[in-house]
């Protein structure tokens, strides 16, 4: 893939290797990361929390908290358009993107972050999903299945071609890893976070209209295919961002599980968005803490906590709706004599 940008962002822990044009924004992002680290260290010292003494845990929490905002933010729109599986499809192509990055690094002897190549490949795949369903009139899940298998196949082939160097590092992308969230990876994630929240913030109304009623949105003059493309591109960014700690296989869970839980509790769309972010934050914070304490894999732990919260939300939602129905019965009983 010749489209992979040759921005020399090293996977190493130093921001100083980034020259020229990217210097100013990376300096700013680096400063944010440093202050965040200071803050957590201070909290850790004050409260005597051992896990907050480690720099990699600071970055893990930072990345986790940001993911838990943007994943449900995008996921809410996806789930209510019946596109829950798009995250899975894009995660598998992001895996191909990682393989492309590692492959180029090995062959050309350069230092491209596999996360950057993953962003690019996943966004191309996102466009491909939209184009396939627009051009062939196939249902969206067919185009997703095609892109998903293509992505995984491409990744598998590239890794087998260059087995010696690549296979070693691939586990961390498949399953995610707290300890490998480097400083530059955290910077990439902050960048993705800013893009995703800004775009959703600006186009919230349009995305909501398209999600709720596509035909009425077209009648109202919205360019529906364009918003669909924006949505899938944002999904690709979130997926790659979350892949660092969730891993390819589990990344889609962050897009779907908190959203499904929130839908059980919320009445309005705004409530649903807020509730899904709260549930996701809970899952990430509890999950990362547990995975540190018991040395379990972070992605899996976070997803299990999220599913636990989902089950709780379903039960709570059932209790709520029974109460609503009882209220309705009382209300109509009181209204009747007045008729």
């Amino acid at each position: 893939m010749s489209v992979t940008p040759t921005i020399p962002l090293a996977t190493g822990d130093t921001a100083s290797v980034v020259p020229g044009v990217t210097g100013v924004p990376t300096d700013a992002l680096g400063w944010i990361i440093d202050r965040w680290s200071d803050l957590l260290s201070a909290v850790g010292d004050a409260a005597g929390i051992e896990m907050l003494q480690y720099g990699f845990m600071h970055r893990a929490f930072l990345v986790g908290i940001l993911i838990a905002v943007m994943a449900p933010l995008i996921g809410t729109f996806l789930v209510h358009r019946q596109l829950a599986l798009i995250g899975d499809a894009l995660a598998h192509t992001a895996f191909a993107g990682v393989a492309v990055g590692l492959f180029i690094n090995a062959v050309l002897d350069v230092g491209i972050s596999p996360y950057l190549s993953a962003v690019v490949v996943a966004m191309i795949a996102a466009l491909a999903i939209e184009l396939i369903s627009e051009v062939t009139d196939a249902y969206n899940d067919v185009s997703m299945a095609i892109v998903l298998s293509t992505g995984f196949a491409l990744g598998a082939v590239l890794i087998s071609l260059n087995a010696g160097g690549l296979a070693v590092g691939i586990n961390q992308y498949l399953f995610g890893n707290l300890a490998t969230v480097s400083r530059s990876n955290a910077m990439i994630l902050i960048g993705l976070f800013l893009i995703v929240t800004l775009v959703v913030g600006t186009t919230y109304k349009q995305l909501l209209y398209v999600t709720f009623d596509e035909t009425a949105a077209r009648v109202a003059g919205l360019n529906v295919p364009w918003y669909n493309r924006v949505m899938t591109m944002l999904t690709a960014m979130v997926v790659v961002g979350a892949m660092q700690i969730m891993g390819v296989i589990l990344v889609a869970a962050m897009l779907v599980v908190p959203v499904a839980g929130a839908a059980q509790l919320a009445r309005s769309f705004r409530e649903a968005l807020l509730a899904s972010i709260i549930l996701a934050e809970l899952a990430v914070l509890v999950g990362i803490t547990l995975s540190f304490q018991y040395e379990a894999t972070a992605g899996g732990t976070i997803v299990l906590v999220a599913v636990g919260l989902y089950v709780g939300a379903v039960l709570l939602g059932k209790v709520q709706s029974t109460r609503d129905i009882e209220d309705d019965i009382h209300a109509t009983a009181e209204e009747r004599p007045a008729d």
Partner: peptide, 19 residues
């Protein structure tokens, strides 16, 4: 297609103002 979507009547009507 939106059976499970949490959205209030007021939010739907407000969409008329979006354009």
């Amino acid at each position: 297609n939106t059976k499970e979507m949490p959205i209030t009547v007021a939010e739907v009507v407000l969409m008329g103002r979006f354009p």
